[in-house]
Write a protein that binds this DNA or RNA. Structure first.
Length: 615
DNA sequence: GAGTTGAAACATAGGCTCCG
DNA sequence: CGGAGCCTATGTTTCAACTC
């Protein structure tokens, strides 16, 4: 029990009442009472069950911001980035952590450009280059080593610097096993440099192939060639230390420069799309460096590195966060919440499955109440909620309003002037967005921001509820028509029957029977004979019907026909059948009883418009 | 759009390596 | 040198593909 005392200028009293009332709608488990100086408002519980407990979850990598990340980096116990990611975030395991770190390396260290090794028949020979670089290791051992390196290089499609380092180390191991000669760090370093230079001999051709594949065929061959040369020049001017390692931004710089020069010298435009395509192609050829990421402590002290890590987390695909952390009202309770606060003829509700926006899971629920005491004039009333709290102000700026305006309500049987905008009619539409982080348009938390994922879910939820409304409205309309037809027939038929009896000079016909047949109704008739009561259920409709027929009699019935249940209450006997009657068929229900007993028939399970009760 | 199904990845628990 | 975090095995959840 929570009690609050408030003091206020009560000019906006009706809004306060609305607020409390709306709160009651989305909190059907709570009993809410508002006492004002004059008058009070009460909302009783609709359920005894508390909302399901929520589970606490760690943040999702897509949902954090730089400030939060820095704080987390500062306070974590882990020292490796991998451990930090796996320990502090939800939905991050070994695999995801690895791919985040790879992305991070791309940002932080840059990628290493991988070149196509020269083909064996080309002039440059890896084996010869490596052999030259090695000294004092003996003829045989050097040959084995160089051959091993050359073989492994030939196997690869493209090679980055770290690939060569790896290959040379493997070759050295193999050569040591075969010949017993050790190839130490110094020798390996020289061999790597030699092999690297050999691989990098023909950058022009390599880049030409990439650029040509990435640009449209409309580009002149000569232009592409000169562009590739200029790009290769950028790679060539670097000193050996960089190992063609570059970030995407640096690559963009290269491409921009080469493109600008091409545009200037050759007078050929090299547009944004072409540049992006070239960057994409070259970036694809690049290899992520295998370097260890920095320790968590160093990242925590360095805003730029942390930002790179954040970018990497954003770029990596990570599966959606668990949804156990949300507490939806559930469709049933949305309905009962509406039922207790609004007096309407019809209620519909829908709860969507959880969705995700930017790392925060969310659930959208919608409810519609229609008819009854709701005001028929003017637009529908829209109730907006975020995490069970009503949103009062800035209705027009809210995503929910936008979505509602975008729906063609005429499809769902509501009046919508002009075919768009808020619909008119005696209806209340309720939308609830539950999320770990509801995106509001502003600090004041008045309106939900236009996040596409959330808007989509809102629309689907509202449409789901509106479909129910539509089928209800359609049914109501057809029942209305049926009633009118029946009214007309029941005035015309007796007169016709009378006239007919006059002309044919026969007894007057049973018009109820005919009426039922004309209206395709289900007809229930009673025949009493010598203490035997027969209830005849005739189905004139086109579908199978299964009405519940309950006969209330004042004496104990006997010889009750099959399928009946007899219950005695306060001296009255309730005999209930649930017969299945096929189309154009009839079913006879029988029992025996004293002659002087009275009986009363009640038929349910069929709309009253489709039933002719002639008992 | 809903439902189903198989697969892959994450979560969790318990021993071992490595940082400070 | 000590203790805490990292690494490996089993169960569960989510995702993607597919069909209606």
């Amino acid at each position: 029990r929570i009690e609050l005392e408030m003091e206020a200028n009560m000019r906006a009293r009706s809004q306060l009442r609305d607020y409390v009332k709306h709160t009651a709608v989305v909190n059907p488990h709570a009993r809410i009472e508002l006492r004002e100086p004059n008058g009070e408002f009460k909302a009783e519980r609709a359920t005894d069950r508390l909302p399901a407990d929520t589970e606490e979850i760690r943040p999702h990598p897509h949902g954090v911001e730089l400030g939060t990340l820095l704080k987390m980096l500062d306070s974590t116990d882990s020292y490796s980035v991998s451990g930090f990611l796996q320990g502090e975030f939800t939905r991050v395991g070994g695999k995801t952590a690895t791919s985040v770190i790879e992305r991070f390396n791309d940002h932080h260290y840059g990628c290493e450009m991988a070149w196509q090794p020269p083909k064996t028949h080309d002039d440059t020979d890896i084996e010869a280059a490596v052999t030259d670089a090695v000294a004092n290791k003996g003829r045989e051992a050097t040959d084995v080593f160089a051959a091993a390196v050359a073989d492994r290089v030939a196997e690869r499609e493209r090679l980055a610097h770290h690939n060569i380092v790896e290959i040379v180390a493997n070759g050295a191991d193999a050569a040591e096993v075969d010949t017993g000669t050790a190839f130490g760090d110094t020798v390996q370093g020289k061999a790597v440099a030699a092999a690297w230079n050999a691989v990098r001999t023909d950058l022009d051709a390599d880049l030409y192939a990439l650029v040509d594949g990435a640009t449209s065929t409309r580009k002149d061959d000569v232009v592409v060639e000169s562009f590739a040369e200029r790009l290769a020049a950028k790679f060539d001017t670097e000193d050996d230390e960089t190992r063609d390692r570059l970030t995407r931004d640096a690559l963009r710089g290269y491409v921009d420069r080469a493109a600008d020069m091409t545009a200037e010298r050759d007078d050929v435009s090299f547009g944004e799309t072409a540049r992006e395509n070239v960057i994409g192609a070259i970036w694809n050829a690049c290899r992520t460096v295998p370097d260890e990421p920095p320790k968590v402590r160093t990242i925590a002290d360095d805003r730029d590195t942390a930002s790179a890590l954040l970018d990497a987390m954003r770029e990596t695909d990570i599966i959606a966060p668990p949804t156990g952390c949300l507490s939806p009202i559930t469709a049933d309770l949305v309905r009962s919440g509406l039922e207790k606060e609004f007096d309407a003829d019809f209620y519909a509700s829908a709860t969507r499955d959880a969705g995700v926006h930017g790392g925060d899971p969310f659930i959208v629920e919608a409810g519609i109440a229609y008819g009854g005491d709701l005001a028929a004039e003017g637009g529908v009333e829209l109730l907006r909620f975020a995490n069970r709290v009503p949103l009062v102000y800035q209705r027009g700026a809210c995503a929910t309003t936008d979505v509602l305006k975008g729906i063609g309500w005429r499809n769902y049987g509501l009046d919508q002037p002009g075919g768009s905008g808020l619909p008119n009619g005696p209806a209340v539409v309720m939308i609830h967005v539950a999320s770990t982080n509801v995106p509001f348009t502003s600090e004041s938390k008045d309106a939900i921001a236009n996040v596409p994922e959330i808007e989509d879910e809102i629309e689907l939820a509202v449409r789901e509820a509106a479909r129910e409304l539509k089928s209800y409205l359609n049914k109501r309309q057809s029942m209305q028509q049926r009633r009118e037809k029946q009214d007309v027939l029941s005035t015309v038929l007796p007169e016709m029957a009378e006239k007919l009896a006059d002309i044919t000079e026969r007894d007057q016909l049973e018009i109820d029977d005919s009426l039922a047949r004309i209206m395709n109704n289900v007809l229930v008739e009673r025949h009493v004979e010598n203490g035997t009561v027969k209830l005849v259920v005739e189905n004139h409709s086109g579908t199978n019907e299964s009405p519940d027929v309950t006969e209330i009699v004042s004496a104990e019935p006997s010889a009750v026909s099959d399928g009946a249940r007899v219950v005695e209450m306060d001296g009255e006997w309730f005999v209930k059948w649930s017969p299945e009657v096929e189309s154009d068929d009839e079913s006879v229900l029988e029992y025996e009883i004293d002659d002087d007993a009275s009986f009363d028939l009640d038929v349910t399970g069929i709309e009253s418009e489709k039933l002719t009760n002639n008992a």
